[in-house]
Amino acid sequence: MSVQSLPAETAPGAAAAPAAPRRRRPPRALTAVLAVALLAVLAAVPLVADPFSTNTVSRILVFALFAMSLDLLVGLTGLPSLGHAAWFGVGAYTAGLVSTHWTSEGLVTVLAAAVAGALAAAATGWLAVRSGGVYFLMLTLAIGELVHQLAQSLSSVTGGSNGLFGIPSIRVAGTPLTLAGYVYWFVLAVVLLGALGLWLVAASPFGAALRGIRDNEGRMRSLGYSPFRYKYLAFALAGGFAGLAGGLFAGLVRIVNPSDAGFTTSALMLLAVVLGGAGTLWGPALGAAVVVLVRDTFGPTLEGHGPLLLGLVFIVAVYVLPRGVAGLADLRRGRRRAVLPGTDEAPA
């Protein structure tokens, strides 16, 4: 959760700086110290934790990247997707198939997964981004469910409802990573690079344009931007990062099920984004940690009914945390809303 803390001080302020010059931010030095400390803690996890906990933290990292990729759509572009697990699933299946049939070289598999996720999102995204709001929600749900059904019905390729199992362990430079610790470090490195990529997208002029489209699409259009092109690119990019997370997931747990691409996974990730605070990147990563912990750690003690608890958390979160945990941090700092609806968000 190290890089995730970086965007907080850059993302909301970068675009809206002219409109709110007196906005208080945490000092850069403090953020940097926190980031380095978190990075150190994360890097040290396999040294101090048992393999099971290390594995859990690995999964949290993967889902944090997944949630951040969804935040690119939901928080940054204002496109609430209920089918984002589709690209995660596409990435996971791609990585699984590549490592089973070709090579399990870690970088090759996750890059193939990212490319596959982006291509799959690009293939269907043009239809979804034509619409906004609730229509987008429904269309992405339909697209996601289609991918889910494909994973189930193309059993000769995907293993059907049994899932794709027996995925060989990740190799780095030809050496298979068998210890949970080495796999963890590989996952951590890729997740950090992915998070850095997402943060760069969010901080770039492209990201500012996305925020502009989210806040006032008509105005952006009148300024000469093509919302469709930006949204489409954001959709494909988000699919690519979700695919990257999926590729890591396949290498980590070494089995992929159709449900990994399904509605429940999508809904849980949307919960992570909402819970953490959409648009901040670090918030959704935190939300993903909560979701994974509740589902995988408390779930077994609830006889596999973790989603029940998550559903209740979801309902409560909608009421009491309209801006997520990240919104709480803003309140504490004395600013009620990071982005005002009418704020001039046009990029300089």
Partner: peptide, 22 residues
Amino acid sequence: PVLDQALLTLGISLVVAEVLSI
């Protein structure tokens, strides 16, 4: 926003489906 209400019903659907399976 309309999305918040949709999210609420999404949470309700998760809860109802789990209660039914229990």
